[in-house]
Measured scan of single mutants.
Amino acid sequence: MASQGTKRSYEQMETDGERQNATEIRASVGKMIDGIGRFYIQMCTELKLSDYEGRLIQNSLTIERMVLSAFDERRNKYLEEHPSAGKDPKKTGGPIYKRVDRKWMRELVLYDKEEIRRIWRQANNGDDATAGLTHMMIWHSNLNDTTYQRTRALVRTGMDPRMCSLMQGSTLPRRSGAAGAAVKGVGTMVMELIRMIKRGINDRNFWRGENGRKTRSAYERMCNILKGKFQTAAQRAMMDQVRESRNPGNAEIEDLIFLARSALILRGSVAHKSCLPACVYGPAVASGYDFEKEGYSLVGIDPFKLLQNSQVYSLIRPNENPAHKSQLVWMACNSAAFEDLRVLSFIRGTKVSPRGKLSTRGVQIASNENMDAMESSTLELRSRYWAIRTRSGGNTNQQRASAGQISVQPAFSVQRNLPFDKPTIMAAFTGNTEGRTSDMRAEIIRMMEGAKPEEMSFQGRGVFELSDERAANPIVPSFDMSNEGSYFFGDNAEEYDN
């Protein structure tokens, strides 16, 4: 993207840094990872977990959730003011799984939030270390993106479920800051804005008074975040219109849905970061690795190297396929839920299948599930090659597409044709070009129609051997075009429920 120079890199967003050079960025990201790792080690000690239990991804998720809940100030305040039966607002906890007599047992633990905050700050040299908290939120978000298709949420806001490739980060909490905003897809931002506008339509006082002023500035800020994701002048001009509207209503909703559809071809720039579970960072720190000293990046080879040398386990339900569970977590670790499966298959070195073909449910185990038949197995999170994460949407291309997802959002900077089903997408653009945004709409449609099938995206960008740390010898991959490109292809993934 041309304006790259004016933006802070995501590592800076990730670490609240002012302008830093590459070495400083690597050190501050490393410091953040160190903090998460030290916190995780301490929690495993508190909970008396064995090494194996500490490497269980379900335990990692519970521990991450506990610290996120302990620092969720708004919710904590709300819980104190609106006490609900049987919930102690000062405590947080969740299921911890232990191996007892050759069987997995679930144990519900409860801790004072104050105590968890103390352990977290102690692991982070006394700081609140917001960057580390956001990092864990993005890992949870990436896992949700890989596990669930947001059909219901899309339909509720009037969008087409086939636009799911635009929904990265749709389950990120509001408090995820600049680093969170960077990884949100165009569809996620559109959905947040539509929800806001709908509230304004239904509630006369939404934009009024002292609160209304705050609401208005939040609305304009979200519009600017979305505008910054678009790469064409016409899309940005249309966002200006939406932002400046005196009284946002149905016309703005129409414009936003139009823009979301246009992003299936004229893709937005959305950041991709490899955020790993805390149970990967903990053992690495415990083994003596100093992330701050060595430096770390979320968008280069580092996460690949770390996963190459990590042992992570997962509980497996009786009829689940461990290899499929591994694929789910591998995609989440690489922030690749909406990437082209052919690119992923090449990088991973084994075939990556669409969601609907995987015999696996989510990673988390519900409290009512029976533990008797639970097994555990090693997650295979290694890769054959590594590639640089991208934040450009890439230019655009036609490809055989599917009944489910009709476009992709690249996660890796790797040369390819970008699949999208042009006739299906263009069919949504018939007729409606009147109104105050008509010239911009016409211009956007013209650009979409001009998108050429034979153009290559990320020209000359390749993948790298894991021994090639400096990215000196790019390998331009070859793809098996007979395979499906979309992950949520004609899909039956479970729906995400809060």
Results as ranks from 00 to 15, higher is better:
443 E>A: 06
365 I>V: 11
31 K>H: 08
495 E>H: 07
201 I>A: 13
274 S>L: 05
194 I>C: 14
10 Y>M: 06
34 D>E: 15
429 F>S: 01
415 Q>N: 01
178 A>P: 13
180 G>D: 10
113 K>W: 08
323 A>F: 12
366 A>R: 02
436 R>W: 04
457 S>I: 01
189 M>I: 13
304 F>I: 15
142 N>G: 07
43 M>E: 11
471 A>H: 01
179 A>Q: 06
475 I>D: 01
86 G>F: 10
181 A>W: 14
51 D>H: 02
380 E>I: 08
488 F>M: 04
12 Q>F: 05
446 R>I: 04
188 T>Y: 06
3 S>Y: 15
342 R>T: 04
89 P>H: 05
378 T>F: 03
157 T>W: 02
22 A>K: 15
378 T>N: 07
463 V>P: 00
423 P>F: 01
28 S>W: 00
435 G>E: 10
396 T>N: 04
213 R>F: 06
149 Q>H: 08
373 A>S: 14
204 R>L: 06
361 R>H: 03
254 E>L: 06
297 S>H: 05
194 I>M: 12
308 Q>M: 14
48 K>T: 13
400 R>Y: 03
494 E>C: 07
392 S>Q: 02
172 L>M: 12
441 R>K: 09
82 H>V: 08
366 A>V: 03
300 G>P: 04
343 V>L: 15
343 V>S: 12
59 N>E: 05
374 M>F: 02
392 S>C: 05
388 I>P: 04
152 R>W: 07
40 Y>W: 12
323 A>M: 09
93 G>P: 11
313 Y>A: 10
184 K>V: 03
211 N>E: 13
41 I>K: 01
139 W>A: 03
468 D>Y: 03
337 A>L: 05
250 N>C: 13
88 D>W: 00
78 Y>S: 01
110 L>P: 11
54 G>A: 15
141 S>I: 06
119 I>Y: 06
113 K>M: 05
119 I>N: 10
270 V>S: 12
110 L>E: 03
75 R>P: 01
292 E>L: 14
256 L>S: 07
264 L>D: 02
259 L>H: 05
473 N>C: 12
492 N>Q: 06
407 S>K: 07
351 K>F: 14
485 G>V: 12
24 E>F: 04
289 Y>V: 11
61 L>K: 02
364 Q>V: 11
363 V>D: 06
413 S>D: 00
3 S>I: 11
41 I>Y: 09
49 L>G: 04
155 V>Q: 08
206 F>T: 03
74 R>N: 08
104 W>Y: 09
414 V>M: 15
483 N>L: 13
316 I>Y: 10
78 Y>G: 03
300 G>A: 09
172 L>P: 09
394 G>D: 06
115 E>V: 06
325 K>A: 01
112 D>I: 07
471 A>G: 02
107 E>D: 15
112 D>K: 05
187 G>H: 05
29 V>T: 05
386 W>F: 12
484 E>R: 00
137 M>W: 08
160 D>K: 02
401 A>T: 10
63 I>F: 05
349 G>R: 06
18 E>R: 00
165 S>G: 10
58 Q>K: 12
161 P>E: 00
405 Q>A: 09
261 R>M: 10
12 Q>W: 04
412 F>L: 15
492 N>T: 14
151 T>C: 04
